[in-house]
Computed example of a mutant assay.
Amino acid sequence: MAAEPLAPGVWGVVATPFTGSTQDVDAASLAKLVDHYSRIGVTGLTVLGVFGEAVRLSAAEKRAVLEVVVDSADLPIVVGASSTSTAPVIDEVALATEVVGDRLAGAMVQVNTPDPELLARQLDAVHAATGAGLVVQDYPLVTGVAISAADLAAAVERVESVVAVKAEAPPTPPAIATLTARTGVPVFGGLGGVGLLDELAAGSAGAMTGFSFPEGLKACVDAWWRGGYQAALEAYLGYLPLVNFEAQARIGLAVRKEALRRRGLISGSGVRAPASGMPETLAEQLDRHLAAVENVEN
């Protein structure tokens, strides 16, 4: 399997919708959401990441999610591995290669050590066992592992199978600047798009993140390529209040899924424990933000 660098642009991070009180995977909503991403013209999809609640899915559910996504859109796919130890990561990536096949643009593997030599060994082991190109995700809020941008770059430089880095260790702009200068590998921002403008200015290849209006991420990135900072700023300004609203600690996932539900893109906004639901006290403010974005789009 060739390890081709990820194409620049917006890689939509796909939520995993659940049904009602049983919280089974909602295949129909998932297919509808994936179709929406395809229709707005994203570069590719990222599935079974943190936003996809992959850590709370069984192996059978992960397989089912991947099958729905593959059947719902003809787009390249990055598949996340929720584990951090080598053996279970290999199992997750093997599942992705089996189900997604030639559509697998990369397997997203978490940074699991601050030691660049050990990290390089981990990445080499995953690639040797699966043949997959690797997207290295630096997300200390989830893993608890902090690595310097210089050490991450050193690890990436040693591993030929790395196809991209997803930089989510704040402050992201200087990290992205270091990674792009040192590695030549495309680097994508995440964190809900909060720092997208600054990340583009630092040399990022685009966005790989969840947002209830991925149209806004695409408008910003496309405008950056057409006209630079000022054009991207003007394209993104109307979305930024909602981006910020969805970035609230502990409830951001639930807020974003509720926004997707109110858009009619998924049927339910439930999240699996231990994630927190959206407080009802925020419902009116969410409606205001959604209405404001609708005005931008119209």
Rank of each mutant, 00 (worst) to 15 (best):
L104N: 02
P173Y: 12
I251R: 04
L57W: 12
E4A: 14
A105Q: 06
G228Y: 12
P114V: 11
T113N: 11
G238E: 10
V78P: 01
A64H: 11
G210D: 02
Q23F: 13
F245C: 15
A59Y: 13
R261D: 09
V89F: 03
E67P: 15
L286A: 11
L118H: 10
G228I: 06
R39F: 07
E53I: 02
T97C: 09
L30Y: 00
L95R: 06
G238W: 13
L141V: 12
A259Q: 05
V69I: 13
Q230R: 14
T22D: 13
T172E: 15
A181C: 10
V42C: 03
F188Q: 00
P116Q: 07
L237I: 08
D35P: 05
T209L: 08
E61C: 04
E234Q: 12
T19K: 15
A231S: 14
N244T: 15
G238N: 10
G203A: 10
P76G: 11
V135I: 15
R256M: 08
E67K: 09
L134N: 10
D26K: 05
T172G: 07
G131A: 03
L200Q: 01
V185N: 00
G238Y: 11
G206M: 01
P171L: 10
Q248W: 11
V296H: 06
A129L: 14
A235N: 05
E53Y: 03
A219N: 05
P274C: 11
P186C: 15
V221K: 02
A207E: 09
S269C: 13
A254V: 08
A235R: 03
Q122Y: 03
N295T: 07
G184Q: 06
S72R: 11
A164W: 01
V78F: 01
T209E: 11
T183G: 07
L242Y: 01
L152M: 14
A259G: 09
A231N: 12
R288K: 13
A155N: 05
A291I: 15
E67R: 12
S276I: 08
A28G: 07
A283I: 15
V145L: 14
G131K: 01
V187M: 07
A154I: 08
H289R: 08
A96F: 02
L123H: 00
S58R: 09
Q137P: 06
